[in-house]
């Protein structure tokens, strides 16, 4: 296990010095032990691909990383400090895309993204939000209530929220669910851009991803089910 270097406060503004790590994480759901002693270390400019079969605890792991759930044992650290202690800084730098999109049916995509930013303490005017929504392929439905959008389109609204937030760390739970081929390609581009600019991504997916040129780390939760040929990074520590 590599321990983080103690850095001075003012250096934290440099995204390339950020680090997310998990130490001996144990997760229990009811009576079932999902994983124990899980170690993980993610540096700026890296993408962590969490793999494992259904029900192995991928989502539980992401929720532990996001701070929504508390681990049975062990801790998650942001720049070497427990995320419980630096909650405010950590949540400022992190966005979490869950299974549920968090998109309100009665609001338009622009309003949804605007409120998403407002909840993070950021003021965003529609002129800043619309180009991002257009990039996500929602040009035709900017002022429609999200109720009439398809599942994939709502997923795109949620992804636009991530982009507008400008957060450093993206935690994405199955971001490709419901997206069409072009949507998947767009997300691959976003991931590549984000990671190459010094961002960090933790994600799960069951779809093959083309991530050439992205520094990818693999994390296997539970037994290996199949070999995925599309990403050629060595498997990290198994749970």
């Amino acid at each position: 296990m590599r321990f983080p270097v103690i850095l001075h406060e003012h250096l934290f503004s440099n995204p390339w010095l950020m680090q997310l790590s998990a130490h001996d994480l144990t997760c229990q759901r009811g009576d079932r032990l999902l994983f124990s002693g899980l170690q993980m270390d993610l540096q700026a400019g890296q993408l962590l691909l969490v793999q494992g079969g259904n029900g192995r605890g991928k989502t539980s792991f992401l929720r532990l990383l996001s701070g929504l759930s508390q681990p049975e044992a062990g801790e998650v650290r942001w720049n070497g400090e427990s995320i419980d202690r630096v909650r405010e800084t950590y949540q400022q730098s992190m966005v979490y895309l869950a299974h549920a999109n968090g998109v309100k049916d009665d609001l338009t995509p622009v309003e949804n993204v605007q409120i998403y930013a407002g909840l993070r303490g950021q003021k965003r005017v529609p002129a800043e939000i619309e180009p991002v929504l257009v990039r996500m392929g929602l040009a035709a439905c900017l002022d429609l209530p999200a109720r009439v959008l398809s599942f994939g389109q709502r997923r795109r609204v949620a992804l636009a929220g991530l982009l507008v937030s400008g957060a450093l760390l993206w935690i994405l739970d199955e971001p490709l669910t419901g997206l069409d081929v072009r949507g998947v390609a767009e997300v691959e581009t976003l991931l590549r851009e984000h990671v190459q600019a010094g961002g960090m991504v933790v994600m799960t997916t069951h779809q093959p991803l083309r991530l050439q040129g992205v520094d990818t780390v693999m994390l296997q939760i539970g037994p290996v089910m199949q070999v995925d040929g599309s990403v050629s990074a060595p498997a990290n520590e198994a749970a």
Partner: peptide, 14 residues
């Protein structure tokens, strides 16, 4: 709670 926006609000820095 149902549409996931409660989680997002709890993940806000506040």
């Amino acid at each position: 709670h149902r549409d996931g926006s409660l989680e997002q609000m709890l993940l806000s820095p506040q």
